[in-house]
Design a protein around this nucleic acid. Structure first.
Length: 435
RNA sequence: GCCCCCUUCGUCUAUCGGCUAGGACAUCAGGUUCUCAUCCUGGUAAGAGCGGUUCGAUUCCGCUAGGGGGUGCCA
């Protein structure tokens, strides 16, 4: 049995759309599952729309999502001579003919047109949609070489698939109708066509194709917003596929192991950013502490902040990891540990620090913390508990929190103070008392 | 217009004729608690409609409706 070869063949005309990259993901998983080859073909014959920037963005995204391919990427522009030679062959064999045809802006020129079968039923078995058929009479001949001599998508796409030995074409639903054309082209070229499978579209809340106006639609945007590649990968996979049981968060190995085209759906799926966000948090929470720490250090440093000597980073990680939904939350959610110039949330100040009793309270607490032994979260909590006499620590805890961090939410207060250290805690309490 | 495809909770989905229709996200209520988050418990919520086949249909078939795709010298 010959090797299974699949490909991802995007046009580099802009950023990479999530619907597009999902096709790449499914192709990649299929190839890995069956032990075949996954290839990348850059369909850059498209006029002026293909740009070097777009190609770079594409390659970056492939790498970011760990979609490795098994042979160097192929550029469609490098194969134009072959496309045209095939058109000649088709002309010679009578499968194509030349004709004068008008463009939509009124100019006419001679093009090469492929002859579709005129009688009978055209059919094929779609890898995900099942048996498909269409009356030949319902299809039309189509242009394969433009009047300027350039090959049209259908020709280039088919010839490249042929040349690359593609055995399974897994692509978006919008290509279903093209499949009848492509099949005919393959046969006219005297070649055995690949199997085809069509993935349903990703749609918005209204059921229309998901686009830019519906929110982030490009892979790069998700990356910029702090989504993890593995979370996006996992979420996109769940749109139209499931492992057959209740598992949702899967490792790459599990995905490869369980993936089949038979389990893919044929109905469109709505993109739900909330579930993606949940999954992202899930991936951050499940990340090894060391990985979280590395990311934390990187982001704190990138913000120009310095982690003090002796700072208990692992303890901070423990406090922060469960509260982080996006990498982008860092360092905003912990900057106050590393600078005295942290921001005060105005609402928090009004709510917790504006009372007439607050200055005296904070001064008193500053004195008590100054004398607290040992400097641990447990000791601090014990002390405040004494003060509250079992009536709830809120009246003490809230002002302290805002005074030392500027915000109303965050790690447990006493853990926060332990991390911050006695000196800073006391100084900040006094500063807030005297403002 | 014509051709093709799709249709289970708000969303992603399980079910391959036996269903008290399960899970997850979201949402609501409660628990834990110094906040937020996590975590735990519980609730609301679905088979587009109509016919048929069958002892029995969410599951099979047909029709209708709704939605999507295609119908380019775009890809």
């Amino acid at each position: 049995m010959s090797e299974i070869r699949v490909r991802f063949a995007p046009s580099p005309t802009g950023q990479v759309h999530i619907g597009n990259i999902r096709a790449a993901i499914f192709n990649w998983l299929y190839a890995r599952h069956v032990g075949g080859k996954f290839l990348l073909r850059v369909e850059d014959i498209d006029l002026e729309r293909s740009t070097p920037e777009a190609i770079k963005a594409l390659l970056d995204v492939m790498q970011w999502l760990r979609l490795d391919y098994d042979e160097p990427e192929v550029y469609q522009t490098h194969n134009v001579a072959r496309h045209l030679a095939c058109a000649e062959a088709l002309l010679a064999s009578g499968h194509a003919y030349k004709a004068e045809k008008a463009t939509k802006d009124g100019k006419t020129g001679e093009v090469v047109i492929f002859r579709m079968p005129k009688e009978g039923i055209l059919s094929y078995d779609d890898l995900v949609k099942g048996h498909m058929e269409k009356k030949a009479a319902d299809t039309q001949d189509f242009v394969i070489v433009r009047s300027d001599g350039s090959p049209v998508f259908h020709l280039a796409n088919v010839v490249d698939d042929l040349d690359q030995g593609i055995t399974h074409v897994i692509r978006g639903d919008d290509h279903v109708e093209n499949t009848f054309k492509h099949l005919a082209l393959f046969r006219a070229l005297g070649a055995e066509p690949p199997r085809y499978g069509h993935l349903p579209m990703i749609v918005n809340a209204q059921g229309k194709p998901y686009s830019k106006r519906d929110g982030a639609a490009f892979v790069g945007e998700f990356r910029d917003q702090g989504y993890l590649p593995d979370a996006l990968f996992n979420y996109l996979l769940l749109l139209g596929w499931n492992p057959g049981d209740d598992r949702e968060v899967l490792t790459r190995d599990e995905m490869v192991d369980l993936f089949t085209l038979e389990a893919c759906h044929s109905s469109p799926a709505k993109f739900d950013i909330k579930k993606l966000t949940w999954m992202n948090g899930e991936y951050i929470r499940r990340a090894p502490a060391a990985e979280f720490e590395a990311e934390l250090r990187r982001r704190v440093a990138a913000a120009g902040l310095t982690i003090p000597e002796g700072f208990d980073v692992p303890f901070l990680v423990q406090q922060l990891q469960v509260r982080t939904k996006f990498w982008g939350d860092i360092p905003g959610n912990c900057a106050y540990f590393f600078t005295d110039d942290y921001e005060f949330d105005q609402k928090a100040v009004e709510k917790r620090l504006s009372g007439p009793e607050v200055p005296a309270l904070l001064e008193d607490l500053a004195n008590r913390f100054e004398a607290l032994e040992p400097w641990t979260a447990a000791a601090g909590e014990e002390m405040v508990k004494q003060l509250s006499q079992g009536n709830g620590m809120g009246p003490w805890v809230h002002p302290i929190r805002v005074a030392v961090s500027g915000r109303m939410e965050g790690p447990g207060l006493f853990e926060m103070l332990q991390l911050l250290g006695r000196e800073k805690t006391v100084a900040r309490l006094r500063r807030a008392a005297r403002r």
